[in-house]
């Protein structure tokens, strides 16, 4: 019986792989169409958006509305998880790891924070962007709860602060989109104020500000998800 199950699983996986391989052949070759969007972006993206990183230019300028949808999905996920899992119990537990690990992580934290801020701020110049830097920001909070015990971070950086940061990030994104309506008539159009030469830190119009908003939103959102997941242990350990 289990052999039949295994064989059927292998057959399903093989046929799925075959279908994906056939689909891959249907994707047009990027060099076939001379006037395709690929050529438009590689030739004009620096002039139109001012961003040297074309991936960020597509994500937060040409397709910024899609990115707003993605961040809305994360907002919905955070809201759902908090609604299902959060309990109003104060964390009393878990003394963390040894002294050496605590000191080492304490010395490393400013550099991790600097790296995440660098990735967010240079999203339009080098690989990275708001999403990647924001996940590192959230990871700082998560490693704090593992190394120092869950009470340490919770007391200093309460869920209210996290919610405030997440909401302000989302509001910054939508606000830039609304200013775009006033400025040039379309939602999330690039504001070309505060522009200098492409390649400097304050170039690319509104892309760095959108990166900042996305970074705060993602970092705070992931920290909220993590803390609402570990809150249950607190209560049990307190009762034991």
């Amino acid at each position: 019986m289990s052999k039949l199950k295994h064989i059927s699983i292998v057959i399903i996986l093989a046929s799925l792989g075959l279908v994906m391989l056939l689909d891959l052949n249907k994707i047009p070759n990027q060099f076939e169409y001379a006037n395709s969007i690929y050529h438009h972006i590689t030739n004009n993206a620096v002039g139109e958006t001012g961003s040297l990183n074309f991936v960020t230019a597509i994500l937060y300028d040409y397709r910024a509305y899609d990115s707003m949808g993605e961040s809305t999905i994360i907002f919905g996920a955070v809201s759902g998880i908090v609604l299902l899992l959060s309990r109003k119990t104060l964390p009393v537990s878990s003394h963390g790891l040894s002294f050496i690990v605590k000191r080492t992580y304490g010395m490393l934290t400013p550099f991790i924070f600097l790296f995440s801020v660098y990735i967010i701020a240079h999203g339009h110049l080098s690989p990275g962007g708001g999403f990647q830097g924001g996940v590192i920001l959230g990871a700082i909070s998560i490693i704090f709860s593992i190394v120092y015990g869950s009470e340490f971070d919770y007391k200093r950086y309460t869920p209210t602060t996290k919610t405030l940061l997440e909401t302000s990030g989302a509001l910054l994104f939508i606000g830039i989109g609304l200013i775009g309506i006033i400025y040039s008539g379309s939602f999330l159009s690039n504001l070309n104020i505060l522009n200098s030469e492409p390649g400097s830190l304050l170039s690319a119009g509104s892309i760095p500000f959108i990166n900042l908003g996305i970074g705060f939103k993602i970092g705070a959102g992931l920290a909220i998800i993590f803390y609402s997941m570990i809150q249950k242990t607190f209560k049990e350990e307190a009762s034991l």
Partner: peptide, 9 residues
């Protein structure tokens, strides 16, 4: 590199 950074993190 963008996708690599996201995947690593």
């Amino acid at each position: 590199p963008d996708v690599a950074l996201a995947e690593a993190v």
